[in-house]
């Protein structure tokens, strides 16, 4: 449980937010060209990092906007928050 600084609303309790999983997984540009292995990679395989991870969050009980977060999953410390489409900071 932690406090998240929504880029649109400011600091709110984590229970207002919905986690959206790993960030920057690019949607296939040519889905019809994908092999089964590539589909498995896109749909199912995840980094699941213990440490600094880039992920998506949604302020589900607030502004309902999506944004990105860099968080250390070993201690839940939030390193950075940035809007969708912005360049991910290097941590």
């Amino acid at each position: 449980m932690f406090v998240i600084n929504c880029p649109y609303c400011g600091e709110r309790d984590q229970q207002e937010f919905k986690a959206g999983g790993e960030a920057h997984i690019e949607r296939p540009k040519q889905p019809t060209e994908l092999s089964d292995d590539e589909w498995a990679e896109y749909l199912f395989m995840r980094k699941n990092i213990k440490g600094v991870q880039y992920e998506r969050w949604n302020h589900a009980h607030g502004c309902r906007k999506w944004f990105n977060m860099v968080r250390d999953t070993s201690n839940d410390e939030i390193k950075a928050i940035y809007k969708m489409g912005e360049k991910p900071p290097s941590i």
């Binding site: 990092i49 213990k50 991870q53 070993s74």
Partner: peptide, 14 residues
């Protein structure tokens, strides 16, 4: 379960 990845063995109060 909580809906976010974490290795902290804690979890949220709600």
């Amino acid at each position: 379960t909580d809906d976010y990845v974490s290795y902290t063995q804690k979890g949220s109060h709600q």
